[in-house]
């Protein structure tokens, strides 16, 4: 009996979490444009999606911003984490608290404050400003992913390398970086996903003509969302899922290889 209740409860929770996603995917195959009725199966939206200029440009902006901002944030953030780790206690405390600020702060306050900054600096709002904003909110997540790995690092490893004649840069590249690599990769992936999904901060820091997918969806929401967007998100969702399965498989294989 308890087992049944547990299963039923789990089922209900997952139904709640997945119902909207299933609806979204089903409606990407609906031949009617309205979301109210089902008029038959079609793959048209998947074809038309590639011919829609607005959607393709939004996809391009989203991916370009996500790739660039996550790579730049990972480089700056990893370097920052190593530097901060070697600071004295007081400085470390100050810098880390300031780093936490954008993570804890409300997106809307971060967005508005960055908008004020961009206007203050007289930067034109557009692709560059959007990129700067995304790098800014991504860096703290990279630092927070790399920091725990640095704390696990054996302190004497670096010193031993120097004693054996390695230059600081050589030791950094060949000793420290390989050791903290898992943290760096986690940070990179986290930054990439956050960037792809962001709406609020992008909404306030972009200019006319430059819109990512979230902004495009938001502006469409009042007129009714085009099924082409459903089609595109279905493809993106399935590719993430596919990637994940591959990564999992590879990890399983390498674990078996170790044994």
């Amino acid at each position: 009996m308890v087992r049944f209740i547990k299963r039923f409860y789990t089922f209900l929770i997952f139904l709640f979490l997945y119902a909207p996603i299933v609806v979204l995917i089903i409606f990407s195959f609906n031949s009617s444009k309205s979301r109210g009725s089902w008029d038959g199966f079609t793959l048209n939206w998947y074809v038309e999606m590639f011919q829609d200029r607005q959607i393709m440009s939004a996809l391009y902006v989203t991916l370009a911003i996500a790739v660039l901002s996550s790579i730049i944030a990972t480089i700056i953030g990893t370097a920052a984490a190593i530097g901060i780790y070697n600071m004295n206690r007081l400085n470390k405390g100050i810098v880390m608290n300031l780093t936490y600020l954008p993570v804890l702060n409300a997106d809307i306050v971060t967005g508005i404050s960055l908008m004020l900054l961009l206007i203050f600096l007289k930067l034109q709002l557009g692709f560059t400003s959007l990129l700067l904003a995304h790098i800014t909110f991504n860096i703290p997540y990279v630092i927070l992913s790399v920091m725990p790995k640095l704390k696990q690092l054996n302190k004497h490893l670096y010193e031993a390398a120097l004693d054996l004649g390695a230059s600081p840069m050589y030791a950094l590249r060949n000793i420290i970086i390989p050791e903290i690599k898992p943290g760096i990769i986690t940070g990179l992936l986290l930054a990439f996903t956050l960037s792809i999904d962001d709406f609020v901060i992008s909404f306030f820091t972009t200019g006319s003509g430059v819109a990512n997918l979230s902004i495009t969806i938001y502006s469409m929401a009042r007129r009714g969302i085009n099924p082409k967007i459903n089609a595109l998100s279905t493809i993106m969702f399935l590719s993430v899922l596919f990637l994940l399965i591959i990564v999992n498989k590879r990890m399983d294989n390498s674990k078996e290889g170790d044994n």
Partner: peptide
């Protein structure tokens, strides 16, 4: 991983 605006919008449907 599904865009959160879209998921919220799906609730409207």
């Amino acid at each position: 991983w599904m865009n959160f605006l879209l998921r919220t919008y799906a609730w409207m449907t």
